[in-house]
Design a binder for these strands. Structure first.
Length: 824
RNA sequence: GCCCAGGUGGCGAAAUCGGUAGACGCAAGGGACUUAAAAUCCCUCGGCUUUGGCCAUGCCGGUUCGAGUCCGGCCCUGGGCACCA
């Protein structure tokens, strides 16, 4: 009971001992029998870059806190970990260091696995896999062929960034200020034939499915996905070419403004533009300039808006009037029809373009109750109103006009009502080496032929050492020279590999049955959906949309039951904020990373985890601070000391408690209550940890020679603290648990419940406001009713000076909280 | 450019519902203990103030008895934009 008995808190030895015990007992192997309720807790698996970074530590500390909490709540928990192991950095590293990408990747995995294990995360390591192994990606190839058979895979031309010096395709990230990052050459756009997955066939389901996620997903992410899918109702309208042959198709959400269309704008890659350029050198030069803009939407949308007339004329579908066709550098070939009708009076971008090039502006909608504007417009009017200058449609409100004008165009055979999506099909071809080979063979006679199932997997050769960025598969006849599976003649194997988003689109399902002899087996249906998914907000759209898409594909090829419970992969989503340093994202390119290894070496895993969970709520950005770590470390020291100085198994509580002991016990149970409510769904770990710190502060004040009842409550408090702490700092919690003489595994010990009786208090302190300003405080019985409170307050002597010269007009009583006296 | 967030003391933050703004922690200052230091413990800690109070949650306005919280407009910072993962 003296401080001499207290051994030093040395996290390094303590943590490795505890971890060894966990491992020997295989404590965190997911059991998944039907005897209990399952909980699948998944953190986004990492790319094995070589070093764990703070974002990982945060992500996995959050996930483990949730998994451990659920385990203590009695659930059968599955919490796996693996590696998103294909990708560009491996090729870059191989080029730089003269290694094979496979070797670099496997070395990194070995190192990072050690780092993760040092953190004491309660993973079922028996399920670990890396996506770059044939055992994993073979099923991806298998699914690709199924999708090909179902017509959900196809080829089409699409644009890539081409580095003319390195003779290779560049990722958007590799284009810096319009130039290739290695060569410095100005990039070009190049159209090549690529493989696509028909995600647009699922657009409506991906959109409506968001409604079922409303409870478990952040509104922010749902909104981003909704906007990304971008369903819009409108009309397809055909403008006949003045020459009489052919039409230009456009999509518009504003058919009501059709009579205000004064020109058409088409994409630089539009076939008409290309055709016109053949006879017009200046137009060709303009298109050539457009070819040197990188393909990313951000680049296209932020460049100076420019256009050039094509000399082509179309006829207005209703009036027959001639309209000029312009090429505009901001019209995207990949969206809609690659052409838009321009209504400068009612679209701000069209307005600016028309002003710049002196094109006519025709007002056709005016706000209800206003006159047709005379003089020069200052800006486009994009709101609703009634139609003008629109012939027989004049006077209609514009919503009615949408339907009427669409019908008129349809009657003329020049259009129809239609739904358009912003979502485009998913281009999965990569002209890269380090990825899953696309299992197709190009035969000059039979066309594209899938690799027969018996020949799967198409194994990616791993012996290459890269000396230039070009994919070695292109130059390896052993890989690409194959007979056609259909006719047996000479054919060429596809050398494109898959987008790495494909691997991460179904790994969550494979974790349920990592050794299955098929892509998935019946275990998937039991464990899925993931009950809690945790990862960075930066994945809010792409990864999370692709994974939702794949889940539906898995269902539709019969690998998941179509029972309505398996339509979505992730029941609940927690998007963690980024770990920032100096206000910006920690990243290698910015050189502002903080290595978590140093933190763990110095303070131990418990401190690292506790600090990172305490510093900010999970969904918020976390601004890094070295100094604040000390605080978490000191706190653990204080808890350690307190428990060791107590040094006994807590005795049972006596039947009656002194007032002092009751007050302390109330604090203990308030803490249990606060921690629990911050764990259940809210995941405000910072507030939960703060509550534990407060409890510890209160327990430290209990004198060593206290009465027996007080010491019994102290023991209850310490025992509770070990339980409450274990999701955040599991190693020290184990040691405290043992020191308090507790039996059984802390990891599976039942989470404590707050005793409602202990929470009761006989009085409450009310705040007294006058006109909303805090003036006095007053203690009243907890069960006092509003009427008696009002009477007591109005008669309360110290209040009178605040009411001098005023007449009371109203008294607002909020029981248990405050009284507001409204006086004049 | 488009879509989505965030902005509270010197710093990270707290405040389930509209009800005491700043819990908890960091940093700082003062003190105790010590031969000394470290560690530990105790106290102070938003600003102004005539010590009555007044002002404060990015800025401007609104709703309300009462707004960090709700509504409208703006400013700044961060994330995503389909080949970084």
């Amino acid at each position: 009971m003296t401080s001499q008995d207290t051994p030093p808190y040395s996290p390094q030895t303590l943590e490795s001992e505890v971890q060894r015990r966990w491992q020997e007992k295989q404590l965190f192997r997911a059991v998944g029998d039907a005897s209990g309720e399952k909980f699948y807790c998944l953190s986004m698996f990492p790319y094995p870059s070589g070093q764990l970074h703070m974002g990982h530590v945060r992500n996995y500390s959050i996930g483990d806190a949730i998994a451990r909490y659920q385990r203590m709540r009695g659930r059968q928990v599955l919490q796996p970990m693996g590696w998103d192991a294909f990708g560009l950095p491996a090729e870059n590293a191989a080029l730089k260091h003269g290694l094979a990408p496979a070797q670099w990747t496997l070395d990194n995995i070995a190192h990072m696995r050690g780092q993760l294990q040092r953190l004491g995360l309660s993973y079922d390591w028996s399920r670990e896999f890396a996506t770059c192994t044939p055992e994993y990606y073979r099923w991806e190839q298998w699914l690709f062929v199924r999708l090909w058979e179902k017509g959900l895979v196809y080829q089409k031309l699409s644009t890539v960034n081409w580095d003319p010096v390195d003779q290779t395709v560049l990722a958007n990230e590799q284009v810096v200020d319009g130039r290739g990052w290695r060569s410095g050459a100005a990039v070009e756009r190049r159209e090549i034939r690529q493989w696509f997955l028909r995600i647009t066939a699922y657009a409506d389901e991906l959109l409506s499915g968001l409604e079922h996620l409303a409870e478990g997903w952040p509104e922010q992410v749902l909104s981003m996905q909704r906007n990304w899918i971008g369903r819009s109702e409108g009309a397809e309208i055909r403008f006949p070419l003045a020459t009489g042959e052919g039409v230009v198709k456009v999509f518009t959400t504003r058919p009501d403004t059709l009579l205000g269309a004064t020109y058409l704008a088409i994409a630089p890659e539009h076939p008409l533009a290309l055709a016109a350029a053949r006879t017009q050198p200046e137009l060709a030069a303009f298109l050539e300039r457009c070819r040197h803009v990188a393909v990313s939407e951000a680049t296209v949308e932020t460049q100076e808006k420019e256009g050039y007339p094509t000399g082509i004329t179309v006829r207005h579908p209703l009036t027959g009037q001639p309209l000029p066709v312009w090429v505009a550098n901001f019209v995207l070939m990949g969206y809609g029809e690659g052409a838009v009708m321009s209504v400068p009076a009612h679209d701000q971008r069209d307005f600016e373009f028309a002003r710049k090039y002196g094109l006519p502006i025709q007002v056709v909608v005016v706000p209800e109750g206003e006159e047709i504007p005379s003089g020069i417009l200052e800006q486009a009017y994009t709101g609703s109103g009634r139609l003008v200058h629109s012939g027989i449609y004049d006077g209609l409100d514009n919503e009615t006009a949408k339907a009427r004008i669409t019908a008129a165009v349809a009657a003329a055979g020049l259009g129809r009502k239609t739904v358009n999506y912003r979502l485009r099909d998913w281009g999965i071809s990569r002209q890269r080496y380090w990825g899953t080979p696309i299992p197709m063979i190009h035969c000059p006679r039979c066309g594209a032929v899938p690799v027969p199932e018996k020949d799967l997997p198409v194994v990616l050769p791993t012996h290459y050492h890269l000396d230039n960025p070009r994919s070695p598969l292109l130059d390896d006849p052993e890989f690409h020279q194959v007979p056609c599976p259909q006719c047996g003649g000479g054919a060429r194997r596809e050398t494109d590999t898959m987008d790495t988003f494909v691997e991460s689109s179904w790994y969550y399902a494979r974790f349920t049955c990592p050794d299955a002899a098929a892509m998935l087996d019946e275990r998937a249906a039991r464990w899925l959906p993931v009950d809690q998914y945790i990862g960075g907000v930066e994945h809010a759209v792409l990864h999370l949309l692709y994974a939702r898409f794949f889940n539906k594909l898995l269902r539709d090829v019969g690998l998941l039951p179509a029972d309505g419970r398996h339509d979505e992969p992730f029941r609940r989503l927690l998007t963690q904020g980024m770990v920032l340093k100096d206000g910006g994202k920690m990243s290698k390119s910015k050189g502002n990373t903080v290595d978590p290894q140093g933190l763990i070496d110095r303070y131990g895993a418990d401190t690292a985890r506790l600090f990172i969970l305490f510093a900010a709520p999970p969904e918020q950005h976390l601004e890094w601070s070295d100094a604040a770590v000390e605080g978490a470390y000191r706190f653990l020291h204080r808890v350690w000391r307190l428990v060791h100085e107590y040094g006994q198994t807590p005795p049972p509580l006596p039947a009656t408690l002194s007032a002092e002991a009751r007050d302390l016990r109330r604090l203990v149970h308030q803490c249990i209550d606060r921690v629990s409510s911050n764990m259940d769904g809210r995941y405000h770990f910072n507030a939960a940890i703060a509550a534990i710190m407060e409890l510890n502060n209160a327990l430290m004040k209990v004198p060593g020679e206290a009465q027996a009842d007080l010491r019994a409550v102290l023991g209850e408090g310490l025992r509770s603290m070990a339980l409450l702490l274990s999701p955040f700092a599991p190693h020290i919690a184990e040691a405290l648990w043992q020191r308090l003489g507790q039996e059984g595994e802390l990891s599976f010990a039942p989470w404590p419940n707050a005793d409602p009786e202990a929470l009761q208090s006989s009085t409450v302190t009310l705040v007294i406001q006058v006109n909303g300003k805090l003036r006095e405080r007053l203690e009243v019985p907890a069960d006092a009713d509003a009427g008696s409170i009002e009477a007591v307050v109005l008669a309360y002597p110290p209040l009178q000076k605040h009411l001098a010269g005023l007449s009371v007009r109203k008294v607002v009583v909020v029981p248990g909280r405050l009284v507001n006296v409204v006086a004049q």
